[in-house]
């Protein structure tokens, strides 16, 4: 039986009828049309599907859409505000924190969580903070550099 859910996504509220078994990532991509969050492994390991749920980074392939009824979601599409990139988006660009870009939407959401909890992280804390996100291109060093650059900029 379908259920009605009401969710605020990137600041806009919407209501949809969904089957309980619909995964959150499929809801976001196929129902809402936000294709920024990617499906990499679909087995809770790669983090490409990471979105923010009530301020917490979660893997949207390992949740059902019905579980976010009444909640706030933020995806990579919602990070731009007033036409300006988020400092993390700028830093990923400037520091070459991405190559193919597949992991980037999830990676940036995980990094945002890290900087909120640890505004000036050490290299080790950065690597611990992105444990749940795999990148097959960069070798991570440029991502670490990008997080440091964003941290410095956000601290000003």
């Amino acid at each position: 039986m379908k259920r009605l859910i009401s969710v605020t996504i990137n600041g806009k509220q919407r209501t949809d009828e969904v089957e309980p078994r619909l995964l959150l990532i499929h809801y976001l991509r196929d129902v809402v049309g936000l294709t920024g969050s990617h499906i990499g492994c679909e087995t809770s390991l790669c983090g490409a599907c990471t979105v923010e749920l009530d301020g917490k980074a979660v893997k949207s392939c390992t949740m059902f859409a019905v579980q976010v009824d009444g909640c706030r979601l933020l995806t990579i599409e919602g990070l731009v505000s007033n036409g300006k990139y988020h400092p993390l988006q700028e830093a990923f660009w400037n520091e070459h924190g991405l190559q193919c870009g597949f992991c980037t939407p999830g990676m940036i959401v995980a990094c945002k969580q890290l900087l909120e909890r640890t505004p000036v992280p050490t290299e080790e804390e950065i690597r611990h903070g992105i444990e749940g996100n795999l990148c097959r291109c960069t070798g991570y060093q440029h991502i670490v550099n990008a997080v440091k650059a964003a941290s410095a900029k956000m601290g000003i």
Partner: peptide
């Protein structure tokens, strides 16, 4: 335990 996303939920 796991990673940050797993610890959040």
């Amino acid at each position: 335990i796991g990673d940050v996303q797993v610890r959040n939920l």
